[in-house]
Amino acid sequence: MDYLKAFIVGGLICVIGQILIDKTKLTSARILVLFVVSGCILGGLGLYEPLVRFANAGATVPLPGFGYALAKGVMNEIDTSGITGILTGGLKASAAGITVAIVCGFLASLIFNPKEK
């Protein structure tokens, strides 16, 4: 059941992205920005949390989940350390993701060469 929920919710979020790509000619970079920002706003409004509880990875793996993690991180940080949380919460929450991504990217640049399509 976990898997079915993750599949359907995750798939549907991607379908929204696909409709945006086909209908608005947005580049994938813009789609990524749009999804992270909307996830963050929805997270701030407390609207994304229920989706995460329902679909788990289906809601956290797509990029709005990354935005949601930013919002949640900021709010948690404010709860624990007050006003400085506004400055530290976002990057703290996304620290692992960004670090792994850039370390992997760097290592890949040492090992691989670009492939012609």
Partner: peptide, 18 residues
């Protein structure tokens, strides 16, 4: 897959590594 592989966190990783 189009957005199917852009929207998940894997797409973010791809956008950094590529």
């Amino acid at each position: 897959a189009g957005a199917g592989s852009v929207v998940p966190i894997t797409g973010f990783s791809n956008s950094i590594t590529s």
